[in-house]
Every structure is written in structure tokens, then in C-alpha cells.
Amino acid sequence: MINAKAFQPDNLDISNIGDLYATNHRWLVGWLYQKLGCSFDAADLAQDTFIKIAHLGNMSTIKTPRAYLTTTATRLMIDLVRKRNIEQHYLEALCLSQAHDFVASPQQIKEAVETLNEIAALLEGLPEKVYRAFLMCRLDGLSYAQIANELGVSTSMVKQYIARAMMHCYQAAYQPSAA
């Protein structure tokens, strides 16, 4: 959660972030505490919020610091909730799965959940058939014909779906829109 390396980022503007932190850190922890009901989560997310903002460099353009902080913190909360959700289902499925070729270590599981969280963020916003087609192709290794059968569409539609999913992910990853 708190990554020690993050405390030495390249473009950290120490002077400005110091004031923002001093004035607002306790308030933000309290605000997050109200939302999450867990002191550890609230402390972690507050730190992550300041770190994320610190990377922007120039603090002077922020007119309403608390609104800015809560907007950033909310995005991190969404991410946390989604990640916990993925983790819960991933672990359940691992337990239930028939394939016991290997036993995943906690570290492997943590990395898998991080990866899946990234992927989920990229796939978000796609209609159900589109992301299902993509996942059936990439994760189940099904052919277009098999996917077409499953979804009740033509094979050419399946290829279009998968291409659309990949474009959607590409744009989410490499052309992030202004928030």
C-alpha cells in the first residue's frame, strides 16, 4: 500500500506540498475515515492522495485544495474498492478451480490482483458482449466460432468486438482523456 520508493519521486515539489499537507492531511484522513470506516485504509489512501498530487509539481494552480483532494481521493477509493472486489472473486475462483498445477504464493496473488485491476480499469465502459468476447478469446482461448456460438452473434462480429475491446484498452492506456 504505502510504497517507500514513492517518497523519492523525481519531480516532487517539497515546498508547496508541505503546506498542503500540513493544512489538510488530518482533515483528509478524517474524511476518508468517514467513507471507509477503517483507520488503516484511511491513512494509506490519504498518503497515496498526497503522493499522487505531489507528482504534478505545480501546486499554485489548485484553487480549491480540499475539493481537489477529495476528487483525487475518490478515484483512489474507487480503485481500492474495485481491487478488493477482484481479489475476492479471484481467490474464490482459485479455491474452486480444478487446476491445481501450482499453488499461488501471496506475492503472486497480490501481483495478479494488481494486474487484473489495471486490466479492469482499461476494459471499463465496454458493453458486456464486447468485453466477454475479448476475455473468452484471451483467457479461455476460444476460437471466433466458439465465441460466436456462445454470444449468439456472427464470427465477423466477434472479431469486431475483440478489435473494439483492444482499441478501447489502447486508448485508455495511452491516450488518457483530461480528467
Binding site: H89, A93, T115, I119, A120, D140
Partner: peptide, 17 residues
């Protein structure tokens, strides 16, 4: 997707999507 258990990954992703 290579380093994750595929079936479990599908369960996790479909749940949030």
C-alpha cells in the same frame, strides 16, 4: 494476462465489469 490464472482472472474481471 500471461501471469494470472486464466479461469480465476475471468471470474475476477467479470465480477467487476
Amino acid at each position: 494476462f500471461s501471469d494470472v490464472d486464466h479461469a480465476a482472472a475471468k471470474a475476477g474481471l467479470e465480477a467487476v465489469l
